[in-house]
């Protein structure tokens, strides 16, 4: 349903061109939740912004296709995109709960989103908001309240309601639970899953937290330094990770189910994406790195139906 092919988005910086997203491809079927996982600055937010064409002025899509039901979103004009945004694809930005206008009642802010994309009367809008509130398990009577009268978790629900306002097919959620407490986080995750089950929405969930992914996603794309280094369904990623980065990530989450073991971490830091990028971007932090890794970029190789990995030596590495 949504197909991203070889997306490349670069940022103009005084130091040169920052290759934030450099050849990212994935597919999303109806009703699927795809998780895009990676450290900060790996490009996952840029992928999201590229999809809805809301990139900052310094960023530019340099190539690739984003196909929604076969139509390339990247070739659409701004006017055409207005019909796509919110009605077909909507987005919940990172830290969105802080972006609510404190001087307007919440109802009006959602109404703004609706009216920007649909022609409805005031009454219709009000009913719609009531329904949306119910959908996100908020008391509809509270829609007249101001943002400061809501807790963090409730504000996030409001943002989710706003994203659902025009009944989109795809919702992109960028770090929807990062600023929230553990219990509230769980409630939001459960809410997201229920919404998907009820409305058959497809979702792209962007996060750096693998346990959120484990809880919610059907498919996972592991991003590193602008590329997807491994992609696959949730079980194979967790049970048979192939890419060294994936393996390292999995080893760094503390697991409640087992007794204490020394957590491992990944030494070093992400390469500078403006300068010369060594062929395999994980080179330098990879425990299995060889000469070849610093010279040639690893090709994407299929490891199964709708799974792939980008590593020269994935066959030799034991998936623990």
């Amino acid at each position: 349903m949504l197909q991203v092919e070889n997306l490349r988005t670069y940022y103009r910086t005084p130091q040169g061109s920052l290759k934030a997203v450099d050849g990212v491809s994935f597919t999303l079927e109806k009703g699927e939740i795809l998780g895009l996982v990676g450290e900060s600055a790996c490009g996952k937010t840029t992928v999201a912004l590229s999809t809805v064409r809301l990139l900052p002025p310094a960023a530019q899509v340099m190539g690739g296709k984003i196909l929604l039901h076969g139509e390339d979103l990247l070739t659409k004009t701004e006017n055409e995109m207005k019909h796509v945004r919110w009605k077909k694809v909507s987005i919940i930005f990172q830290g969105a709960l802080n972006s609510l206008n404190p001087v307007l009642p919440v109802k009006e802010q959602i109404a703004e989103a609706i009216l920007a994309h649909d022609n409805l009367t005031g009454e219709e809008v009000d009913t719609a908001i009531g329904r949306l509130f119910k959908a996100v398990r908020l008391d509809p009577d509270r829609r007249k309240n101001y943002p400061h009268e809501f807790s963090g978790g409730m504000k996030q629900r409001v943002m989710i309601a706003m994203a659902l306002a025009c009944d989109p097919e795809v919702v992109i959620a960028d770090e929807p639970t990062t600023a929230l407490d553990v219990i509230v986080q769980r409630q939001i995750l459960d809410l997201i899953r229920n919404l998907r089950d009820e409305r058959h929405i497809s979702m792209i969930l962007i996060t750096h937290d693998l346990s959120v992914v484990a809880q919610l996603c059907d498919k996972v794309g592991i991003m590193y330094a602008g590329k997807i280094v491994e992609f696959g369904d949730i079980f194979s990623i967790f049970e048979t990770p192939r890419h060294p980065y994936t393996q390292a990530l999995l080893k760094s989450i503390p697991k409640m189910e087992q007794t204490k073991t020394q957590l491992s971490y990944i030494p070093g830091s992400v390469p500078d994406l403006t300068g010369e990028v060594p062929a395999c971007r994980f080179y330098g932090r990879c425990p299995y790195a060889q000469q070849l890794c610093s010279e040639t970029e690893p090709k994407i190789e299929e490891t199964g139906p709708q799974s792939y990995v980008a590593c020269h030596f994935w066959r030799n590495i034991k998936a623990h």
């Binding site: 553990v182 219990i183 995750l189 693998l210 484990a214 809880q215 409640m256």
Partner: peptide, 15 residues
């Protein structure tokens, strides 16, 4: 119970 699972096969419901 609110902790997200780390094993996708062991997703448990709610808090």
């Amino acid at each position: 119970s609110a902790l997200p699972t780390t094993d996708p096969r062991k997703r448990h419901e709610g808090v």
